[in-house]
Design a protein around this nucleic acid. Sequence first.
RNA 1: GCCCCGUUAGCUCAGUCGGAUAGAGCGACCGCCUCCUAAGCGGUAGGCCGUGGGUUCGAUUCCCGCACGGGGCACCA
Length: 552
Amino acid sequence: MTPDSVAQAVAAAVTAAAQANGYELDEVPVIRVERPRQREHGDYATNVAMTLTKKVGVPPRDLAAAIAEQLRTTDGIASVDVAGPGFINITVEAASQAELARTIVEAGDAYGRGTSLSGVKINVEFISANPTGPLHLGHTRWAAVGDAIARVFDAAGAEAAREFYINDRGVQMDRFGESIANAAAGRPAPEDGYHGGYVTDLAAQIMREHPEYADLSGPERIAAFREAGYAIQLQQQKDVLDLFRTHFDVWASERALHESGAVERGLERLREQGHVYESDGAVWLRTTTFGDDKDRVLIKADGEGTYFLSDTAYYIDKRSRGFDVCLYLLGADHHGYVGRLKAVAACAGDDPERNIEVPIGQMVKMMKGGEEVRLSKRAGNIITLEDLVDEVGVDAARYSLIRYPVDSPLVLDLDLLVKRSNDNPVYYVQYAHARIASVLRNAAESGIDWAAGPFEPELLTHEMESRLLGVLAEYPRVLAAAAELREPHRVARYLEELATAYHKFYDSCRVLPRGDEAVEPITIARLWLCAATRQVLANGLGILGVTAPDRM
RNA sequence: GCCCCGUUAGCUCAGUCGGAUAGAGCGACCGCCUCCUAAGCGGUAGGCCGUGGGUUCGAUUCCCGCACGGGGCACCA
């Protein structure tokens, strides 16, 4: 039995108990079964009796007893007990629990996938760095988490698109161009310009490819270096993200928004909705109507559109492309944008509670040798995404960035991330996968064809087998919760729990025959359990974008 | 001043609609490989869940205040 089928059985028992005892119960509440912390409390527990006691007017323990009596007759349930203030503790029959191994192996990659977000089109925008430099530590968290969120959405049945917004317009681009142009001429960057060793590298590369730029001057020269630098830098960002296994579906350019008329269309939409006004020679959006601290300028007195104008157009453009939900993953340094973004959705006539979500991620720091890392060998004064990958590898970097809830600040300990022991969770989980792969490999080499069966689930009665099965059964619920709450770290934590359950099982339950021992039915049954566990570990690691190695 | 986030074991952190004796890893101490991967497993020690109130059968969890720490409040991008 799975958590869902147990919950259904409880619901049926509640209805039956109400009928048998004449309880007045217009509707059965949604039943949630949980896995008790204490092993003695059974495989599953529910507190329905306590939640219904008021409505029904019967003491919780009596109500629990009545429900338990009905529940006992359910197929697949071994025993039911009432405990504490009115908890119902349920123990499932070994065979019905172990059938799950077959279910998982047969479902393969699909095990755990759900339909809770079926038919929903979600746009996940993240990183959206300026194309004026390499991606740095501040971008890394979202590079991993944003991608994982999109994968979690896919697993929940949604249609998720990963989108990167390129701020390729405005004065910072000119400052970027001027900085490179100056570097090419051996001059320092202008005030408010871009420094860093990468600027000098860009200048050198551009001079190699376009020696003729040396003869240009004035705005023409700045524009030439700006455009060349933009192209190189954007490509470099794409290459690094590719290496990091974060692949975007859409690279949206701010310039393109202006060139395609999306900005005019967005402005028109906002005017239609009646939230645009003029004051002091500028054009404003009345975002305060929807809870923003102050109204925002769309077009400055000098006639230039603001960055905010592009933002509004971009949001409206996304919606016009059919996305039901637009997710903006922003760093804590941008949290001030939440109010105005929500207001933009409202000003556009949308529901800010449903159509737009703006999770805020806290900052990331790196420690090495007990001290905060501040300098990058490559880029002068910043730590790049590439540095991190060079240092610890893609798997460790992705895993550790996803492993924590994004609303708490993150400190990455580089010394820990390269360690190969169980204080490094990524290896701990991967090791479990490799260990199983090894067992399955050894079985195959010994000519044991477990898949040909027969699989006798009722043999999996060992304490550790039962616990492992219980953890395997949780996976679909974990994935669904991760999608609903936009919290992929739950998947990582779950995998650690699963790895622990497997390692304990492995330690106390011999799988393959030793020496000249015969292949027993329990051997086959345990191999099914191993195969199921390997599958779930692989599926979960896939959600995180981390590899599941067969050997380590 | 206003807004967002955090505060749980010595350290790094889990703990979604309020539930039974608050968890994991590390660090410390003690154990387990002639046997499927010891990158593993078992045990001991370690807690006023920041603080003061409130809500109720029950609060680490929900509400309000306070303290401490981080971040933010542009006709910049």
